[in-house]
Design a protein around this nucleic acid. Structure first.
Length: 299
RNA sequence: GGCGCCGUGGCCAAGUGGUAAGGCGGCAGACUGCAAAUCUGCUAUUCGUCGGUUCGAUUCCGACCGGCGCCU
């Protein structure tokens, strides 16, 4: 498992390891799953995908909604497939929740009628987050401090199953599907510089054209649009903001996202088998090799 | 040179004679089926500088410095 914040060079790291063994990459990235959203999501290039087989990229239509459990189910199958082909699976990515769904304890969701779910979500859509929070503080107080997404989930579960999500988490936790050793790749303070240059590169290498095309083909409210930068580019294409404003905005969005990833990997991975390495440090190769060799002994 | 307007934290910006709203950014955190999402906390002992009036000034007065505009 290789993870780290955006623009940290995870793909680079994966390709680096590929020279050590025949491996295949499973992308744990909630945005690279969408077809057509290529440049802004920094999908591995064709060259990279030829060098190392990739799974989990371009597997969903932009209008389809993914979920951590959905992804974990597929990832589980991809890993079986990779192992059967005699290669070593390396999960690479930045979507913390997906990693948890695969390597951690996602709970066993009770059966819920899809129509009922949709009806509840629709009826909840107009209520303010504050209001939802008040409801959850009664229905499931342990979850009331979380964000809107989590509040909606808590209400949905409570209404449809009569249980608190927090209880289900405890009582219906299912064992992890897989075990992993983590290599957290993080260039430290240099990350901000990398984010700036990566944003600039994307903007001058077809991102705008990609968005123009997507705007013609993909509904405005499709889940795939929910990727940092894309809405901003859309505003730029519409002429609401200047190119300079867009670029500044994108750099900030990306930095903020990378910061959230760092927080996640710092705290949510606590207790796991984690090695941290900086690809810019001179001892990067030693650290990487040590991580790799340790795996060879234990697996 | 004269007249007018303005000068509040990294940026934008409210404000009042009684002791500094808000937004952005930044930092820290949360996170179990929308996660590149969603949400929480913290972030100016101080209002261009120096004086004056006042019990008390960021708020009133004066000078100076800086910016903008107009006039000559």
């Amino acid at each position: 498992m290789i993870c780290g914040p955006t623009a940290a060079g995870k793909t680079y790291a994966a390709v680096w390891f590929a020279r050590l063994a025949a491996l295949s990459v499973v992308s744990a990235d909630s945005r690279q799953i969408y077809r057509g959203f290529d440049i802004g999501t920094a999908k591995p290039t064709h060259r990279e995908q030829l060098a190392v087989p990739h799974f989990g990229i371009d597997v969903l239509d932009p209008t389809e909604r993914a979920s951590a459990a959905w992804w974990a189910g597929h990832a589980d199958a991809w890993i079986d497939q990779i192992v059967a082909s005699g290669r070593t699976p390396v999960v690479v990515g930045g979507t913390g929740l997906y990693l948890r769904a695969l390597f951690g304890t996602l709970f066993e969701e009770p059966a819920m009628h899809a129509g009922d779910r949709a009806a509840i979500q629709a009826s909840l859509a107009d209520h303010s987050t504050e209001e939802l929070r008040r409801w959850v503080s009664v229905l499931d107080p342990d979850r009331a401090h979380l964000g809107r997404t989590q509040l909606l989930r808590a209400i949905e579960i409570a209404l449809l199953t009569g249980h608190r999500v927090s209880d289900l988490h405890r009582e219906h936790a299912r064992p992890p599907r897989r075990r992993a050793r983590y290599l957290v790749v993080d260039p430290g303070p240099d990350l901000a510089i990398q984010i700036a240059s990566r944003s600039s590169f994307m903007l001058t290498n077809g991102w705008l054209d990609e968005v123009r095309t997507l705007m013609r083909e993909i509904p405005e409210d499709a889940p795939a649009w929910n990727a940092s930068g894309y809405r901003t580019i859309r505003e730029m294409v519409r002429g609401n903001i200047s190119a300079a404003q867009a670029e500044e905005r994108i750099v900030i969005e990306t930095r903020q996202y990378a910061k959230r990833q760092r927080t996640w990997f710092r705290h949510q991975l606590a207790g796991e088998d984690v090695t941290r390495a900086n690809p810019h440090q001179p001892n990067w190769e030693e650290q990487a090799m040590a991580w790799w060799n340790e795996g060879a002994r234990t697996e």
